[in-house]
Write a protein that binds this DNA or RNA. Sequence first.
DNA 1: CAGTGGTCTAGACCACTCC
DNA 2: GAGTGGTCTAGACCACTGG
Lengths: 235, 235
Amino acid sequence: MTAKQDMITQDLAGKIRHGIYTPKSFLPSENELANLYGASRNTVRKSLEDLTSLGLIQKIKGKGSIVLDFSRLSFPISRITTFNELNQSLGLKAETKLLEIKEVKKVPDDFSCDNTEPFIKVKRLRIIDGEPDVLDVDYISTKYVKEISPSVAEHSLYDYFENDLGLKISYAVKDVSVQTVSEELAKMLELDPDRKAVLVKSMVYLEDTSLFQLTASYHNPNRFRFIDFARRSKI
Amino acid sequence: MTAKQDMITQDLAGKIRHGIYTPKSFLPSENELANLYGASRNTVRKSLEDLTSLGLIQKIKGKGSIVLDFSRLSFPISRITTFNELNQSLGLKAETKLLEIKEVKKVPDDFSCDNTEPFIKVKRLRIIDGEPDVLDVDYISTKYVKEISPSVAEHSLYDYFENDLGLKISYAVKDVSVQTVSEELAKMLELDPDRKAVLVKSMVYLEDTSLFQLTASYHNPNRFRFIDFARRSKI
DNA sequence: CAGTGGTCTAGACCACTCC
DNA sequence: GAGTGGTCTAGACCACTGG
């Protein structure tokens, strides 16, 4: 059962993306939307809040909700988005090369993680338009995932976690920095002689706040880019 | 007049940061908080939502709101945070060296911005613990800011914009990439011979969706780092 | 002035967790 | 079953925008 507010959000987001509501125009007022969808004004307001935090609209007091025009370029690191979801939305020709799957007793020290249960390590090279782009090293807790088949690792881990296993991924802490990497890794990513890569370390948590996954992603800096939508917060 | 929900948010955030509510413990329930603050449950829920998106708490259905322990390390690019606010919260010894203030007819082409009014250009080198860290090049629209004095540029632009001019900064689009920069810039930032810097380009907008400011920040990659809190979104 | 979004209330029913 | 958060309603008053 999808909540009424989410259906409204989806519907409005679709109409914005498909140009039924165009950038710089105003959405119908909150009262009109409430009538249109047969919902209370509070429910509509919740939807508009979600669209606002997604960067699709901007609310202006006394005037209305105006459609922004970043819908196409948003390439967010500040939401949790997977390689496959990204490629789909950008329409890129992407390929995943599975390098390693094995169970390990613990996670490397530089994650500063003291969990004691075994993890499944998955190492994958992501290739876009024939060029090596990212090396992903994932560690997935065996508390929640007992086994990962090569075909799942080559396809999409998140699709498997969320749709097949029913896990609820909730939030992540990401640490982005630039590192000089090993010669082996530099060769794999076809880096410049300086061997600098952008390292994104992620710690991913489930709805019950338990640690679920650790990832180190090494990006080729010449092709690394992300676009982020940020709001000024009151605190 | 501060809204009741914001006072509750501030109060709870303070109690979390000061350890009155400790990580891994639960906040009082929504009904208890409503009684405590003399507010309706909806108002309390709005506060808890804000704390959730700030990454201070995590709500668990049927159980309660649990305090997370990232309050210290959050160093967000996904909110709009200024150099001064950051340094204050991290307690760093920072210094700003003003290099240039002048009015320019238009903004460099690589911002892909077609605004025609003049902008004020401000160029500043940020030095942390004696080491050059960031070169900021700002362009501020003369539609909203007529003049910027050197002392303001050396202190804090945002403090001036928000508190003195009463401008309402609302949202920004940020584009992060790694670039090879000029020898002059490389020398200023004391870069490695490869002359690679992390470039953060920002476009900042006001509450009425008008473009207000453009910034190019060149970071020394050896000291560049940001930590981000991300939530998985439904859409 | 009428219309907009911003805040707030008091209630309701549901799904979930834990005992 | 009692308590929790999730969703939703119907109403109220406010501050702001525009003509």
